[in-house]
Design a protein around this nucleic acid. Structure first.
Lengths: 339, 339
DNA sequence: AGGCCCTGAGACAGCGCTACCTTAGTGGCC
DNA sequence: GGCCACTAAGGTAGCGCTGTCTCAGGGCCT
């Protein structure tokens, strides 16, 4: 009765399902997996027996026998940025109905930690991996290549010719921010950023390009902080910027939490937004549309990225070819009161 | 060379480690698992061999052979509430060094979904489970009991005598909010809540109790919205409350996103906070301390809860007794400008 | 000095499932 | 009408690891 001392799990096994439905274990296995070579009436019988017994396949046995688990690994650099939460949710929504377990690895923007996660998760023999961007350690790249596990890269486009990616142009987003502020007649444009990952720097590059196209350049108005971005940091960097260059009339923030912090700090210091200084954020996080003034921001398709990346992976798992190797989902400038 | 068609994983196995270190596979297994009956010099040899080969144990084979995986399941009702992110991070920090994989299940405040997650995750034979609160379907409770998997409940205290829990008194937190507002001379106190889970209702109960102790009662000032809480909803509920009872002079919000939305809405409507109406939030989420005015909030020990719950589970897995079955980590009222 | 317990190492088998091969049965084609 | 391709089912074996039992050897007690 008790499971103590027993090596078995106490749960119904495939053999019991097979016996109850009067077929061999292999046929039962095939029937439940939807392998095509089983007669429909047998499939029905097996399904009924499984339901009766409350049978759920043992994932460990399955993974051991097939040298492949029914899991997908998702590696993201942060959980505290709401951005990735939306992406994760979307991935789950696609994977769950297919019976795929989603293993989440948060590497805290640390390449060495990502490398460890990859090493450990490869031991689980996932059937696929969803990665954030293309920037990772040489060892990570080698392990991934050697494993042969199909990968899809999220948030950034590019990579080698055969790499799949789903995202949008970070560069163009930065450029769009610059053009928007220029279009509002602003000329002294600053860039405030934190958590300087590759994507942030791509946005910076696009922003500079936007300035350059208007014959402008203001490297002295770039505040690049390596620490994680936060509302508190946004306020601090904003104050610092104004202290060192009080003629600034427009700011692009690499993430909305920084922008939110700046808007609140401006409110507190009595600095008129957008009259004295216009602000544009990035990601359009939940609070931004409710700030005072409401924050102009670049809305990124983070849920769509998760969904499309998951689907691209499934397509590959089904043995089909993914139509577009670099899927650009674009972005949208949400113009609000702050600019 | 290619792994196609091969049933093996291509990765080094325990047998290879054993051969290289000149011991039997079983001894190698024991050495790597830290089972005590292996001579120290053999352990060292086996470790060295494993490192040389880059051996990582196959979790599937391990789980199959031992009828127990090295994973811990965490079930949380939401990922969008920053609250649970902090808890998850803390759990990871405790579990990872022990080589335990953390499987995250988000049931979106839906008992049926939680039931499905439990059913599916039990198939993984986790060595433990961390659950949020005590409220779940009868079937969920039965499955958990039948599985014999050790559980620790987070965020709420109580449950049956032998149940382990780590959290704080939601009731007392609500009561503390009421007493604080009363102490500020407020008398027309409202309660605004969303996502009406059991813990929210416990806070409501505590808040009412606080009012009752001052001889007050104002059921007409309770706005209970079943939908998920958000900044947008907080603003809307605040406006609605003022429209239907403009003599309100203090509000307790069941979550900080509601309170943040209300502060911003008040700012927009030109309603003086705290002069005309004082506000107290809950959870002390990242933005709250930076709102204008800075938001008074009840800081909940969410990271500490995750850490302590994980440790309690580990203690149980080690076969030791957990000292305190109901671990109360308290809460802290952060008094700021909004009250 | 002999037997006993305890410790450290190995042999054996099996966890539950699926890949691979084989076999039985069917229809089409020359 | 016989041969062959093809389909649907089953038999066999093994994925990589660990629980359990067994066995050898050494120290201790009587």
């Amino acid at each position: 009765m008790t499971r103590t001392g027993s090596r078995t799990t106490g749960r119904p096994t495939l053999a019991e399902v097979a016996k109850l439905s009067g077929v061999s274990p292999i046929t039962a296995s095939r029937a439940l997996r939807g392998v095509s070579t089983v007669a429909p009436e047998l499939v029905e019988k097996v399904r009924a027996a499984a339901a009766t017994l409350g049978y759920i396949a043992n994932p460990a046995a399955r993974a051991l026998a097939s040298a492949r688990s029914h899991s997908v690994v998702v590696l993201i650099p942060s959980l505290s940025n709401h951005l990735f939460i939306d992406t994760l949710e979307a991935i789950h929504e696609v994977m769950r109905p297919r019976g795929l377990e989603v293993l989440i690895g948060n590497y805290h923007y640390d390449a060495a930690e990502e490398e460890n996660l990859i090493r450990n998760y490869l031991a689980y023999q996932p059937c696929g991996m969803l990665l954030t961007g293309f920037e990772r350690s040489e060892a990570s790249l080698q392990m991934l290549a050697a494993s042969g596990v199909p990968c899809v890269h999220m948030m950034e486009l590019g990579g080698s010719a055969d790499a799949l990616s789903v995202g949008f142009s970070q560069f163009e987003a930065g450029r769009a921010a610059a053009r928007h502020l220029l279009g509002r007649g602003r000329r002294r444009l600053a860039f405030i950023a934190a958590q300087l990952d590759r994507r942030v720097m791509q946005r910076a590059e696009g922003f500079r390009q936007g300035l350059a196209e208007a014959g402008l350049s203001a490297p002295e108005l770039e505040l690049l902080a390596p620490e994680p971005s936060s509302i508190a940091l946004g306020g601090a960097l904003f104050s610092q910027l104004l202290a060192q260059a009080d003629d600034v009339d427009g700011i692009f923030f690499c993430n909305d939490d920084l922008a939110q912090g700046a808007v609140l700090q401006a409110l507190r210091q009595g600095i008129a937004v957008p009259e004295r200084v216009a602000m544009v954020g990035f990601n359009d996080l939940p609070g931004s549309a409710h700030m005072v003034p409401r924050l102009t921001s670049i809305r990124t398709p983070r849920a769509a990225v998760g969904r499309a990346a998951a689907q691209a992976l499934l397509t590959q798992l089904d043995g089909k070819r993914v139509a577009v190797s670099q899927q650009d989902l674009g972005f949208e400038l949400m113009v609000r009161e702050s600019s």
